[in-house]
Computed example of a mutant assay.
Amino acid sequence: MACLSRLLSHAHYFSLLSLWLLAAPTNADTVNTQKHTLNIDVLATGLNHPWSMVFLPEGDILVSERNGVLKRVSDKGDVSHVSGLPEGLVYKGQGGLLGLALSPDFSTNKIVYLAFSEEGQFSKAGTSVIRAKLQGNALSDITTIFQTAPRFAGGRHFGGCLLTTDKHLYIALGDRGNRDKAQHLDSHIGSVIRLNLDGSTPIDNPFYAQSTATSDGTKPEIFSYGHRNIQGMTLDPKTNTLWTHEHGPQGGDEVNTIEAGANYGWPTITYGVNYGTGSKIGKGTHAEGMEQPLHFWVPSIAPSGLTIVQGDTFPEWQGDLLLGSLKFGLLVRLDIENGIIVNEERMLDGKYGRIRDVVEGPGGKIYLLTDASNGQILRLHPTQ
């Protein structure tokens, strides 16, 4: 009877396993990592160099494509176009339609924020941000709430990451290839901008008082400066810590936590060197009054996207940072303990190509955007 009981138990187990296998995605890959074994399936394909994605309350995903197209992807992978993007968007070099963020009250006000490279006079371009309502598959009530000043020719380092909190909108800007401007407070270049959600400037911004008390041109919107080209930004809601990473030159990609008024050093200090020649940039790696990164990469991995794992779906990753790598096609996990990065794990190893964005979606699954002319949305969840 004991053998029969075990036989029936095994039969029940294999019956359940068969049902699970039938329900599992047929195109799923399995990848082993240090903490979890992952199932990875393709949710959507046919995206043209997608740059950013955000989840709408009903589960659809809003996706920006760098060529200036906004798309909506259902939870079944159906793709549709969203109309109403503003004129003036220019697709050049690293520019185009970039970061996306939702109002914290999106469920009631339907407000979305979009960053893009906008061309002005004499073919000079800069990063701009609009605030609009998303009604169905169309944008309406569009208002431009921010425009980078000054603007420059060329197609490098627009930044473009957006992040909303209960009260504020953060905008990450690159140096536009004019590195010295990142140390000047009379320029938005190479800074993190903080605005109120309606686009106005918070009076408690670190340089607001200086901008009103002097005539030196200080930009009151600046929250931090000395950045080269931020490509990932996320908030830890438990500690209210704002995490970013940015591209260095040849080496010197950085992970930082952003503090009001802090100077992150570029181009005075960096762990990178000049392209080609390998010569030193600025004063080396340290200077008084300038922040040190919490983590850096030499050689560069070209980090992209950034999220902090909050849900219970990946219990062994909870509280850790996940980011992509454009250069090596990696998913990178940074193990965080008490605000300190204690370990780095590299996953995927180029299997899916360049990873552009990393987002924790509803139910705690992890979603990746691949940067290609036939870009994909990949969905990750641990094996049962």
Results as ranks from 00 to 15, higher is better:
residue 56 L to Y: 08
residue 48 N to G: 04
residue 58 E to Y: 02
residue 68 G to T: 07
residue 58 E to K: 08
residue 104 P to R: 07
residue 41 D to S: 14
residue 61 I to W: 09
residue 42 V to P: 05
residue 72 R to Y: 04
residue 104 P to I: 06
residue 86 P to T: 12
residue 91 Y to I: 03
residue 87 E to M: 06
residue 32 N to W: 08
residue 55 F to S: 10
residue 102 L to W: 11
residue 50 P to K: 10
residue 68 G to W: 08
residue 72 R to T: 15
residue 100 L to M: 10
residue 36 H to C: 01
residue 29 D to A: 06
residue 90 V to G: 04
residue 57 P to C: 00
residue 77 G to E: 13
residue 82 V to K: 09
residue 61 I to M: 12
residue 57 P to H: 09
residue 34 Q to R: 12
residue 102 L to V: 03
residue 38 L to K: 02
residue 70 L to H: 05
residue 97 L to R: 09
residue 96 G to D: 12
residue 83 S to A: 11
residue 90 V to K: 15
residue 48 N to E: 13
residue 49 H to P: 00
residue 102 L to R: 05
residue 57 P to G: 02
residue 93 G to P: 01
residue 44 A to M: 03
residue 37 T to H: 01
residue 44 A to N: 11
residue 81 H to E: 15
residue 77 G to S: 07
residue 38 L to E: 06
residue 73 V to M: 03
residue 66 R to L: 14
residue 45 T to D: 15
residue 102 L to C: 05
residue 38 L to I: 07
residue 81 H to Y: 02
residue 85 L to A: 05
residue 38 L to Y: 11
residue 76 K to G: 02
residue 30 T to K: 11
residue 50 P to W: 02
residue 62 L to Q: 05
residue 83 S to P: 01
residue 71 K to P: 11
residue 94 Q to P: 00
residue 71 K to D: 09
residue 55 F to H: 10
residue 54 V to L: 10
residue 93 G to D: 15
residue 82 V to M: 09
residue 62 L to E: 03
residue 34 Q to P: 00
residue 56 L to F: 10
residue 26 T to N: 05
residue 81 H to A: 14
residue 103 S to V: 06
residue 41 D to K: 08
residue 68 G to A: 07
residue 34 Q to A: 14
residue 55 F to Q: 15
residue 57 P to E: 10
residue 61 I to D: 06
residue 64 S to A: 08
residue 95 G to I: 02
residue 94 Q to W: 13
residue 80 S to K: 13
residue 96 G to A: 06
residue 101 A to F: 01
residue 70 L to A: 08
residue 27 N to G: 06
residue 50 P to E: 13
residue 75 D to V: 01
residue 45 T to E: 15
residue 64 S to M: 02
residue 85 L to F: 04
residue 26 T to R: 11
residue 97 L to E: 05
residue 33 T to Q: 11
residue 97 L to M: 11
residue 55 F to C: 06
residue 32 N to C: 04
residue 85 L to E: 13
residue 58 E to W: 03
residue 27 N to L: 04
